[in-house]
Design a protein around this nucleic acid. Structure first.
Lengths: 154, 154
DNA sequence: CAAAAATAGTTGCGTGCGCAACTATCTACT
DNA sequence: AGTAGATAGTTGCGCACGCAACTATTTTTG
């Protein structure tokens, strides 16, 4: 038996809530992007690039930021490359590396879509939460992320 | 422009934290299940059945609870059926329906694995959070889930 | 009560992604 | 310098899943 430390009711609510709802939440917010011809992964990718210095990032770093494997990013790039939202730029200093750079077309798109996306995030998540809950999500996920990056970093 | 209502810093931290970490968190907890020959989906499935009355649920309800499509559940069942952790039982009252019922072998497995899984959840999430954060995750995801189920329910 | 609509489950197909293997380049050790 | 190892990116393969179409039942409706 030795159940060691089971979860208390409050802990169980936190864990179950997270594990049961997070996929649904992400799905519905992704669905809201469909009318613009994007999925959640494309949006994250374009958003990252639009905020990056020079509007470009090395594939490698981008994959890490997006939580993708390198191969996963290669595939995901296919779509946004074909749509001309992103272009590939070789790195002069490291000829192994390639930058993904968002194009004017990509910037225009994300500028158009962003308000709707933000509204979607508000509607399905942020506006439902109290300020205290918002703060707790922020600090909580920061702690979780810090621990995760340590694990990975060894 | 008309950025309408953008996210405040605190709101951004909450959203970014959630969207960037949740996949990683789920992945690492799934990885911790691998030594037992299960993945996260199998575990959730067995856990649900082990708690259900009669240790069984209709495929349909089970799919909904697990956040899967009906076809997705059919495929997922393949694995646990072949491993004899779950068996299929026809419904006498509705001959379209099929129950998924966890076997003794499945119950034994989940009883063995549960403590390690709980420890994993604690290590990667629960034990990192303050009681206030835990409470906020519980109430926050409950609100999010309630809204989601209304959307779906029309 | 017959016909139409709804519901449970499975199957074919397409997609997104990770892992392992591969090439090309860079870095470190001797 | 020269070789061994690390690193960036791509490709082949496999897996899990959703959607649409299909069959088999049940429910609804005129």
């Amino acid at each position: 038996m030795a159940k060691a430390k089971w979860l208390t009711d409050a802990e169980m609510r936190a864990w179950r809530g997270f594990i049961e709802r997070s996929a649904d939440l992400i799905n519905i917010i992704t669905k809201d992007l469909e009318p613009y011809g994007l999925d959640g992964g494309d949006y994250q990718l374009l958003a990252m690039l639009s905020e990056a210095p020079g509007h470009k990032m090395k594939m490698c770093d981008l994959a890490q930021t997006l939580g993708l494997s390198r191969s996963g990013l290669t595939r995901r790039m296919d779509g946004v490359l074909k749509a001309k939202y992103v272009s590939r730029v070789g790195d002069q200093e490291d000829r192994r590396a390639v930058f993904a750079q968002i194009t004017e077309k990509g910037l225009a798109l994300i500028k158009k879509v962003a308000p709707h996306h933000v509204a979607s995030v508000r509607r399905h998540m942020i506006d439902l939460l109290s300020p205290a809950e918002i703060a707790a999500f922020g600090t909580g996920f920061a702690k979780i992320g810090k621990q995760l990056s340590q694990k990975t970093k060894i």
